[in-house]
Design a binder for these strands. Structure first.
Lengths: 116, 116
DNA sequence: ATAGTCCATCGACGGATGTCAATATATGGA
DNA sequence: TCCATATATTGACATCCGTCGATGGACTAT
């Protein structure tokens, strides 16, 4: 698990221009993070919730996984830049970083993107 | 490697509605396919090429991988519905299935999608 | 028929990954 | 200070995955 901080510049649309080997590694690393059911459920759990954020203790039950396992997945998602972490008291609250998800989404664009 | 044929109905936007555990498995299986540099490069190589399709012998060189390895990745991409295969003579031509890529792209939508 | 080319499959190997129990760390309250 | 709660880390385990060499199967041309 390296190079997770430098994925920021990634995600040119791989179906439109030939992708560089190095960029392929970056993108693949990001998609690999999404390639686990537990992590997708964590993202959905947080994003579809009403608060926009969620503490770890609220996730363990619904996910049906042990607390260390949930903590592990949260770390992976956080290091991939997909989750923001805020510690308040003993609790750790996690929120989705939408721009990060959008960036990965844009990499899968088939037609040219509309400028913002 | 199972359930690769039934991913067709997948991909409701996971950040907007809570995702079902079974659907999370389907989606994760699909993203896992994208979570490899070689497979991303294969998709890009074919899609960014001028013909829209490419035979295996044209990929081995640029990818710098052995022919069995390339064949393995092509199989994975094909079973995931991301590549279409057509055999002509001794050659096997592969083409990207854009709708499949779009479907995965839509799963990462943050805002509601515009109906076609 | 024989040889050659293209592609897929098999078997094996090393490394990565998801999971949990046990433990550590930190924060807040009695 | 001491205990309880919340989270992170460690260590271990089984499984999965990417890779290659060797082989097999199909088609073409000579």
């Amino acid at each position: 698990m390296k190079n997770l901080r430098t994925i920021e510049q990634c995600c040119s649309p791989l179906l439109q221009e030939p992708i560089e080997p190095a960029e392929a590694v970056q993108l693949a690393t990001a998609f690999k993070v999404l390639g686990d059911p537990a992590r997708l459920r964590i993202l959905s759990l947080i994003a579809a919730g009403s608060a926009g954020e969620m503490c770890v203790c609220e996730m363990v039950g619904p996910l049906g996984l042990s607390q260390p396992t949930v903590s592990h997945h949260l770390k992976v998602l956080h290091e991939a830049g997909l989750l923001r972490r805020e510690k308040r008291g003993t609790w750790a609250f996690y929120a989705v970083v939408p721009e990060r998800v959008e960036a990965l989404r844009d990499a899968l664009s088939v037609t040219a993107a509309v400028p913002a």
